[in-house]
Amino acid sequence: MDFINAIVLLLNYTVIPALTYGSQLALGAIFVTLVYGILRFANFATGDMMSFGTMVAVLITFYFQSLGISFGFLPTALLTIPPAVLAMIFYMLFIDKFVFSYYRVKKSPPVQLAMVSVGVMFVTQAIIRIIIGPFDRRFFDGEKFILKANEFKEMTGLNEGLTIKSTQAITIFVTVLVVSIMFWFLNRTKTGTSMRAYSDNEDLALLSGIDPKKVVLITWIIAGILATIGGVLYGLDKSYRPFVYFNNMLPIFAAAIVGGIGNPFGAFLGGYVIAFAEILVTYAYKKFFAYLLPEFMEPDSLMQLLSTDYKFAVSFSILVIVLLFRPSGIFKGKTL
């Protein structure tokens, strides 16, 4: 019994939150890695682009709520994803046309494009703050829990409760759905194969008749879908605040590099690696050991490796370790 309690405890406080957070990171990391692999630059506007898409979703959600439109027990925000994705794609294509394409045609070095993306980051942040302001906004509505701790305790008779928030279930479900469709597209369709070919060997792809403009267009479309959905899911689960989204760029970068940059599947797994590391290292295991160990061995301290203040630092340290020992990432991406 104690053993099951301990497992439920871990599930409740580490596994489920890590799966949720990991999914949110994974979507962002695939976005980073696609842009890096196909458009060939590190996009420092990643976090703010995700923020832009989410902002549109938040605004439409507020509008829907004022009209009294709801999505039953599901959050209204899910309804707003399609228009938000459209707005996001439109914004990305706009930026690409007036900013990035110039440097791409000129074949500027990736560093220059990265620097340009810093400019885009500033502009995007300005637009977001001018439109919606820097404040914390909650836009979640609908049913909050799928499984409440008390219900679980009654059901099973255990001491430990298991809570599943609907945002957690939605996040994991939507991520699996979106990522499966995306991998199907990349691996099983002609256009997807041509995108991977373009990412692998641009010159040869051109010689094979692949239209670079189309590849770039589709990359931004996928990027827009990933960025918006990733951003909305994060916002539903926590809350929407522009500064936090900017900061999320950092663990997302870490996930993309840990997974091997340029490799979408690596980025997907990288998101979970980072999320699990952050949560497992900063979780206090005192109660967990209290269940497992006999009473006289019970620990006095919190049994916490690092305080939760260092959450971000953990993911960055993993990145540093990966860069030191396996610079092309755990799942092998482009060589540095």
């Binding site: 002609k190 194969t193 041509s194 991977r196 070919a197 990412s199 692998d200 060997n201 010159d203 040869l204 792809a205 010689l207 094979s208 008749g209 692949i210």
Partner: peptide, 25 residues
Amino acid sequence: SFVPQSKNVFAELTVKENLEVGAFL
């Protein structure tokens, strides 16, 4: 059709995918 001297295959793709990309048009 042209076969360049170096980097004349898509190293990250499978053999079949290489051929499929060749037939892109």
